[in-house]
C-alpha cells in the first residue's frame, strides 16, 4: 500500500468517528436515558441498531461512547504529550548523572504495563473518566519522554546547533526554533500511535469497570454489558466492537502514513 493511501484511509476512518461525535452534540436519535423502546429490541424501525438490555437506544449509546473514546484520546495525548515533552527535554539537556537517572526511571515506568499502572491509579482515586484519562496520559508520558530524550540528544549533536551556539543564539531560542521543529515530525507520529493505544486502554479499563462509570456509555462498558446477551442480540456487541476497531485502525494508519511521510522527507 502506498504511504498516501495509509494516511488517507486512516484519516477517513478517524474523520468518520469524529464526524459522528460532532453530530452527536447536535442531534441524538433518542435521549440517552430514554428506555421507551423496550428491552433488547432488534435492529430496525425507530431504533436503527436496536436497544440494549435496559431498553436504551444502541445508536445513541454508540455516539456517546464515541465522545468518550475521542475525548480520552485527546485528553491522554495532551497529558502525555505535555508531560512527556517537558520531562524528555529536561533529560535531554540534563547533566550526565541526572540524565542517567532519568533514563532508568523512564525505563522502569515503561516496563510497567500501561493498563496495570492505570488500574493502580484508578484503584487509588476511584473510577471516573478524568482519572482514566490522567492514568493513561501518565503512562504515555513515560514513553513520550524517553523518545523525546533520545531525539533531543540526536538534534543537539548536529552541526546546526553548534552553528547556532557559535552565532550566540540563546538556549531557549535554540530549543524553540531548532530543537522543537526538528523533533516534531517523529513526535507527532508517536502521538498518533499513542492516541490509538489510549482509546484501547480506556475501553479496557471501562470493560473492567475501572473507566467511565454508568450511566455514561463507553464502548468498553457496552461490550461488557452485551456479553451476557451476545447470542440473542449480537448487534449490541458488534456495534461498539466495530466502532472501536474503526477508530484504532484509523489512528494507527494515520500514524503509519505520517511515519512513511517523515522518513521520506529525511532522505
Amino acid at each position: 500500500m502506498s504511504k498516501r493511501l495509509h494516511l488517507y484511509i486512516g484519516l477517513v476512518l478517524v474523520l468518520i468517528v469524529a464526524g459522528a461525535v460532532l453530530v452527536s452534540y447536535l442531534w441524538l436519535p433518542f435521549a440517552p436515558d430514554d428506555t421507551s423502546g423496550g428491552r433488547l429490541a432488534p435492529p430496525g424501525g425507530d431504533h436503527l441498531l436496536g436497544t440494549d438490555k435496559l431498553g436504551r437506544d444502541l445508536l445513541t449509546q454508540l455516539l456517546i461512547g464515541g465522545r468518550i473514546a475521542l475525548g480520552t484520546a485527546l485528553g491522554a495525548v495532551a497529558v502525555g504529550g505535555v508531560l512527556g515533552l517537558g520531562a524528555g527535554l529536561l533529560a535531554g539537556f540534563a547533566t550526565r548523572w541526572l540524565d542517567d537517572a532519568a533514563a532508568v526511571v523512564l525505563d522502569i515506568l515503561i516496563a510497567f504495563p500501561t493498563l496495570l499502572l492505570a488500574m493502580l491509579i484508578v484503584a487509588g482515586t476511584g473510577a471516573s473518566l478524568g482519572t482514566a484519562i490522567l492514568a493513561i496520559g501518565l503512562a504515555m508520558a513515560a514513553i513520550v519522554a524517553r523518545l523525546v530524550r533520545v531525539l533531543v540528544k540526536q538534534v543537539l549533536g548536529r552541526d546546526y546547533i553548534t552553528a547556532a551556539r557559535v552565532a550566540g543564539v540563546s538556549w531557549p531560542r535554540i530549543v524553540l526554533s531548532h530543537v522543537l521543529p526538528n523533533i516534531a515530525p517523529v513526535l507527532l507520529v508517536n502521538l498518533a500511535l499513542q492516541a490509538g493505544l489510549a482509546v484501547l486502554a480506556e475501553a479496557s479499563l471501562s470493560y473492567l469497570g475501572l473507566g467511565t462509570p454508568p450511566p455514561n456509555a463507553s464502548w468498553g462498558r457496552m461490550l461488557f454489558e452485551a456479553q451476557a446477551t451476545v447470542l440473542t442480540s449480537p448487534v449490541a456487541a458488534i456495534a461498539p466492537g466495530l466502532a472501536l476497531v474503526t477508530l484504532v485502525i484509523g489512528m494507527n494508519l494515520t500514524a503509519d502514513g505520517l511515519r512513511l511521510g517523515v522518513s521520506d522527507a529525511d532522505r
Binding site: 548536529r158 552541526d159 552553528a163 552565532a167 550566540g168 521543529p181 526538528n182
Partner: peptide, 30 residues
C-alpha cells in the same frame, strides 16, 4: 565572544544548516 569575535564554517553544509528553517532566517539569527 561567539559570533562577534569568532565564527565557524563546518564541513558538511547539509547538517550545518537547520533542515526545517529557511536559509534567510538562519542568517538573520546572529
Amino acid at each position: 565572544v561567539r559570533g562577534k569575535v569568532v565564527a565557524t564554517v563546518f564541513q558538511e553544509p547539509l547538517t550545518a544548516l537547520d533542515p526545517l528553517m529557511p536559509a534567510g532566517r538562519q542568517i538573520a539569527e546572529p
